[in-house]
Design a protein around this nucleic acid. Structure first.
Lengths: 189, 189
DNA sequence: GCTAGCATGTGAACGGCGCTCACATTATCC
DNA sequence: GGATAATGTGAGCGCCGTTCACATGCTAGC
């Protein structure tokens, strides 16, 4: 575990931590393997012992992001069972995207390995989570179609705000807009 | 217009064309200013006479993408006025994203200049288009909330397919899923 | 028509990047 | 304790975005 000496101790974890920091500080551009190595106090080639290439590191970063997102959603409502609960979860989803835009883009905005098992597991988890919510909120609806619709709606709201297609300068307005859109779309129940 | 000689003739347009080609052939990675210059048969620094930097070229590419998208949507249905018409437009939107994934990502998947007037104009045009459709399809609904919801829903469907979160290998299935999701979400009318 | 000035393209250069490889150092296991 | 595997080093390759002094060709005003 010692950071001094020739061997780092836990360079794998240190790289991941450095990557997350760089992402938050300077966006996707700042996340280079060389910068990660610098921050970990190590030669530029060292990270390659732990990550095959930049994409592998990004996949690990994305996996962390998926876990964080899951936590935020769970914190928004432990077990949503009405459309209004669902709206609260939607707000949390969009807020996560706006709080950590670069991380969110790494998770969703890049053409990445489909076969990174970490990523696949994380996204199927989220998918299952959405499906469970929808089953409780709209028991009479076509479960599959409705879960797809709900995830897409919320995901789309996140991206449109992220891209400035919808004004995201004031969080209050964003929350209101997200709630309004969810209500408007799912008025049927 | 002559391509021979010291001066190119219309390097600005040539760069844009080259950029679109490279994007289609090799994805976002392949779209470098140097590659654009090579394809246009010109020195690496020449494009800088016409585009301030890489982002400026990307903005121009995105603007072309917005126009293409608008055409595709108009072709799907000239003036949608029922939820089923809207579903057809949604299918066209998602299909565009899947046909030109790299272009779609340039349009929406990057944190780009908000102040590129080309981009702003194009996106407000799309926004207005959606609002008009919604006004016809759901005259009784809150127009703003509903347009936001519809755009977000469709946009989200596009991105989830693009990222492999939803299986996009067979176009037929994609169309079916999009239609199903739109119907499920907007069953209220 | 000539020339001054301007727009446009060139070529070399800078620093940063991803990535590889031969090599040095340390940990681990018999 | 000595072989072997794991881990970090440093130099180096080719690519990238970007800049700058310079070369070239078009065009306007005399």
């Amino acid at each position: 575990m010692s950071t001094s000496g020739y061997h780092h101790g836990d360079l794998r974890a240190a790289c991941l931590r450095a990557a997350l920091e760089l992402l938050e500080e300077g966006g996707a551009t700042a996340l280079s393997l060389r910068a990660v190595a610098r921050r970990a106090g190590v030669a530029p080639s060292a990270p390659y012992r732990h990550y095959a290439d930049r994409d592998a590191l990004l996949s690990a970063v994305a996996a962390v992001g998926y876990r964080q997102l899951a936590e935020r959603l769970a914190a928004a409502h432990p077990s949503p069972s009405t459309p209004e609960d669902l709206a609260a979860v939607a707000v949390a989803y969009v807020r996560f995207a706006l709080d950590q835009p670069a991380l969110f883009r790494v998770m969703f905005g890049e053409p990445c390995d489909r076969d990174s098992s970490e990523r696949v597991a994380a996204t199927t988890a989220i998918s299952a989570y959405v499906t469970a919510i929808v089953a409780r909120c709209f028991p009479d609806s076509d479960a599959e179609a409705m879960s797809t619709a709900v995830w897409a709606l919320v995901h789309g709201l996140a991206f449109l705000h992220l891209d400035g297609k919808l004004d995201a300068t004031r969080p209050r307005i964003v929350s209101k807009r997200v709630r309004g859109a969810v209500r408007a779309a799912l008025a049927a129940g």
